[in-house]
């Protein structure tokens, strides 16, 4: 009799391991859409979490605000100085934009890789297990969010949309170590002060994240044409992968190392945006370049 029970347990264990493997395989397959039970569960829990997490944020935010009051005077001074700068910049941007449009007209270019709209959203939950760094926002398919859209904060790129439900969407942050999480980017060349010639930008792919130093890793095939990457250079999305628009800030170069094989260089990049303390984000809707437009 005990033999029989042992067997029953063994069978339950084996069957559950088979289910486990099947489910993992199913969720790792490249799915375009979530199944409807998943969408339903995500939306309902999202609703409840918004109801509970908003007040919690307000309480904590209030405490922070009181602490901030202490530094208000000095901050105000600094901000006023910045505001003046801002007005100047605004004027400059207008002039530049106008120039840019005219130049593009002469080039007969219809849509640039860098045109996009922004949609504001708020974070409602974060994955506690932290293997796959996922956060969820309160906007979904009904608001026009689609898979693979880029997500930014005011400081820079934080990730892309991984899955969409009708009223919520899940963002995969740059800090998750998913091998399919790749960004095509370039390192902006600095003007050489001696001969005042602009050098060419360095293009590469960001494909990895170093959890220990909290830095992104970009691989770059060094060719002997004199291009150099130095600490402090800006890294920006190139818009060439077809996923992200051009011109979103990613971070700054921290160090450059040869990789294990010695064929490529590893560039360590400190992300510009804080990937831990996020509350409000913006979803980037890339201006659609349809096939018709290109053919015309």
């Amino acid at each position: 009799m005990p033999q029989f029970f042992m067997n029953k347990r063994l069978i339950v264990l084996l069957v559950s391991i088979i289910i486990l493997v099947a489910l993992i395989g199913f969720s790792l397959s490249d799915r375009k859409k979530l199944s409807w039970p998943e969408q339903f569960v995500k939306d309902t829990t999202g609703l409840v979490q918004t109801l509970i997490s908003r007040p919690a944020h307000y309480v904590v935010g209030f405490v922070d605000n009181v602490r901030d009051l202490k530094n208000t005077y000095e901050e105000n001074k600094e901000l006023k100085a910045k505001l003046e700068e801002n007005a100047q910049l605004k004027y400059q941007v207008q002039v530049l934009e106008k120039d840019n449009k005219e130049l593009q007209k002469t080039l007969d270019e219809k849509a640039s890789l860098s045109e996009f709209n922004l949609m504001k959203a708020t974070i409602i939950r974060r994955n506690p297990s932290q293997w796959n760094e996922l956060v969820t926002i309160n906007r979904g398919e009904n608001d026009g969010v689609k898979k693979n859209m880029a997500v930014i904060t005011y400081a820079g790129l934080i990730g892309k949309i991984k899955s969409v439900a009708p009223n919520t969407a899940t963002i995969q942050l740059l800090s998750s170590e998913d091998p399919t999480n790749r960004i095509s980017a370039y390192i902006e060349a600095k003007k050489d002060e001696k001969d005042n010639k602009k050098k060419t930008d360095v293009f590469g792919i960001i494909a990895d994240y170093d959890k220990e130093s909290k830095q992104l890793i970009m691989t770059w095939e060094e060719v002997p044409n004199g291009l150099k990457v130095k600490k402090g250079q800006l890294v920006i999305t190139s818009g060439k992968g077809g996923v992200f628009p051009k011109g979103l800030a990613i971070g700054t170069v921290q160090k450059v190392e040869p990789d294990e094989n010695g064929l490529q260089k590893k560039v360590y990049i400190e992300p510009a945006a804080d990937l831990y303390d996020i509350e409000h984000v913006m979803v980037v809707e890339r201006e659609a370049i349809t096939l018709d437009e290109e053919q015309q």
């Binding site: 289910i19 493997v21 993992i24 969720s27 039970p37 569960v41 939950r125 506690p128 996922l134 991984k162």
Partner: peptide
């Protein structure tokens, strides 16, 4: 629920 809502890797 944890798998569906948070980790997105079922099982």
């Amino acid at each position: 629920l944890f798998d569906i809502v948070y980790t997105e890797i079922l099982g």
